[in-house]
Design a protein around this nucleic acid. Structure first.
Lengths: 207, 207
DNA sequence: CTCGGAATCAAACGATCGTTTGAGCATACG
DNA sequence: CGTATGCTCAAACGATCGTTTGATTCCGAG
C-alpha cells in the first residue's frame, strides 16, 4: 500500500514530470536527476517504481495512449461502416480526442512527446508503438479505404501517411499558440479541429 | 594547409559521420566518441576543427541548408510573380530540391536531421534556423499568398504550417522506403514529388 | 505494542559524457 | 639544415549519467 505524503502519489508525480521534461528536452536530454527534482521525489524512486528509465518512458506512452486511442476507437466505432458517414467524420474521430488531451493536466505536452517519437526513427520505440497501438491506425486506414474506393492501395497509404505527419506536427504545436482572449478554450479547440479536418480532407480527396 | 592522409579531409569526414549519427540517434544521443570512431578520426579532432559539439551541429545544418535553400530560392525565383505560375509550381520549387539531396552522398539523411530539429522545440536551434533561413519560408509564404488571394492571413499561415509539417515528415522518410527495382531512382523521386505536390496543393486550395 | 513489508532516503557505483592538454608528427619556407 | 605551423594523437580532466545499495522511516495488520 502506498504511503504518500503529498497530494499525488509518487508514481503519478514522476509520470507528470517525465512527460513535461521529455517533451521539452527529449528522452536522452532529460536526466533522472532533473526529473526527480522536478517531481519532488528521491532519485532512486524511478528505478524503484518503474525498474529503469526505459520502462518509465514506456509508461509515459502507455498512460496517455491508452486513453487517447480508447477515445479514438470509440469515436470511430460510432461512424465506421455507416452509410451516412464522411471523411470529415473519420478525421474528427482521429483529431478531436487528441486536442482534448490538453484538458487533462499537461496532457497537451504529450502530443509533443509523441511528435518526438515520430521523428526519432528509433527501432525499439517504433516496435513498441506498432505492437501496442498499430491496430488503431489500421482501423482508421480501413475506414478511409471504404470512403475512398477509387484510390489504389499505394495512393491510400501515401495520403494517410501525409495526413498523419501533418496532424502530428500540428497537434504537437497546439497549446503553444496562444488563443485570443475573447474566445473560450472550447471554441479555440473547435476552430483548430475544423482547420485540421478541412485541410486533411482536401488532401485525402485530392483528384 | 591541410595534410590529409585519407581521400576526404578530416573536417568533411566528421561532418558526414555527424549527419548520419545525428539522424540515427539524435543530437544528444550521438556521442563524440561514436562519431569520431565512425569518421575514423581522433576524438580531439571535433573540438580542434569546430570548437565544440554545438558548433559542429550548427555546421551540419549550415552545410546542407545553404545548398538546399539556395536551390529552393533559385527555383522559386524562376516562377515568383509570373502570371502563368501555379501553386503546384511553387510546391515543386520547395519539394524537388529536398528530394534531390539524396543524390549527394548521404544527403537524404539530412532530412531526418531536419525533421528532428523540427520536432525538438529547442529554443537555441529554432532561433538559429529562423535567423539564418527564415527568409526562405517567408518568400514561399508570400508567393502562396499571391496565388491564394481569397485566404485570410490566419488561414494562410495555418495551411502553410500544415503543409510544412506533412512535407517534412514525408521527406524525412524518403530514402527509407525502398523503390521497386524496375523504376530508376530518378523516376522514383519524380513520382514521390508528384504525390507530395498533389496532396499539398489540394490542402492549400481547399474550400 | 510489535512486527513486517512498502516506501523513501543519502551515498556511492562504474560508465560515459564533452572538453582540454601537451607531446609528437608532418609539411612548407627561410 | 633549422624552424615555424597545421594537424593528429593518447591520455587525462571534472562533470554527469543510469543504476544499486543499505539504512531508515512509515504505517497498517495481528
Amino acid at each position: 500500500m502506498p504511503a504518500s505524503s503529498s497530494a499525488q502519489p509518487t508514481k503519478e508525480r514522476i509520470l507528470g514530470a517525465a512527460e513535461e521534461l521529455f517533451a521539452r528536452h527529449g528522452f536522452e536530454g532529460a536526466s533522472l536527476r532533473q526529473l526527480t527534482a522536478a517531481a519532488g521525489v528521491n532519485l532512486a524512486a524511478v528505478n524503484y517504481h518503474f525498474g529503469s528509465k526505459d520502462r518509465l518512458i514506456e509508461e509515459v506512452f502507455r498512460r496517455r495512449l491508452d486513453q487517447l486511442n480508447g477515445r479514438r476507437m470509440a469515436a470511430l466505432k460510432d461512424i465506421a461502416g455507416q452509410p451516412g458517414s464522411t471523411i470529415e467524420d473519420v478525421l474528427a474521430a482521429f483529431i478531436v480526442p487528441a486536442l482534448e488531451l490538453s484538458h487533462d493536466g499537461n496532457g497537451s505536452l504529450f502530443m509533443r512527446v509523441l511528435a518526438r517519437a515520430f521523428a526519432e526513427h528509433d527501432d525499439t520505440l517504433r516496435k513498441f508503438l506498432s505492437e501496442n497501438y498499430g491496430h488503431v491506425m489500421r482501423q482508421f486506414t480501413a475506414e478511409f479505404a471504404r470512403l475512398l474506393p477509387n484510390l489504389s492501395k499505394e495512393e491510400l497509404y501515401w495520403r494517410v501517411d501525409l495526413v498523419t505527419g501533418a496532424l502530428t506536427h500540428a497537434m504537437s504545436g497546439f497549446g503553444m499558440i496562444q488563443r485570443k482572449s475573447d474566445v473560450t478554450e472550447h471554441k479555440h479547440r473547435e476552430q483548430t479541429a475544423q482547420h485540421l479536418i478541412r485541410f486533411a480532407a482536401a488532401g485525402l480527396k485530392s483528384p
